[in-house]
């Protein structure tokens, strides 16, 4: 499938992460091969990664450990909450919707529908 520049640029990030399907990745590569401008744009994100040194994992783990320990000493733990601490806005919205529903229901002409004895449906009006 041939891609134009706009379509190719929209998927550069996914291409860089290696999350595109092989067919789509192939079409992005084909476009990059033929378009110098897109190649230049994508260069920072799709440039080949240098292979890690053999002790990379160990160094990364040590660095993370020291950083985490330092951060834990420096700041109190931040709890990631699914819910805002203040639920009053949710409660107000719920109350407003309920009041609205009741107000709508309260007003107007009562329904004329009476399935068991509908004279009009049977063509017997009045």
């Amino acid at each position: 499938m041939i891609m134009n520049c706009h379509a190719a640029q929209a998927v550069f990030d996914l291409h860089a992460e290696g999350r595109l399907t092989p067919r789509r990745a192939k079409s992005v590569d084909a476009h990059l091969a033929s378009c110098a401008r897109c190649r230049a744009l994508s260069a920072p994100t799709v440039s080949p990664v240098k292979p890690a040194s053999p002790d990379f994992k160990a160094r990364l783990a040590a660095a993370l450990k020291s950083k985490t320990a330092a951060a834990a000493r420096a700041e109190p733990p931040i709890e990631e909450r699914l819910w805002p601490r203040d639920l009053s806005s949710v409660a107000v919205a719920a109350l407003a919707l309920t009041l609205l529903a009741v107000c709508i229901g309260w007003s107007g002409v009562p329904s004329q529908w009476d399935a068991g004895n509908d004279e009009l449906a049977a063509g017997r009006i009045p």
């Binding site: 709508i104 007003s107 002409v109």
Partner: peptide
């Protein structure tokens, strides 16, 4: 979310069919 909340509660007495709203 609004649909999930309002759908069971909404009613309108001045329609022919109570499920219209």
């Amino acid at each position: 979310l609004v649909t999930a909340f309002a759908l069971p509660l909404a009613f309108l007495t001045n329609t022919y069919d109570s499920t219209a709203i």
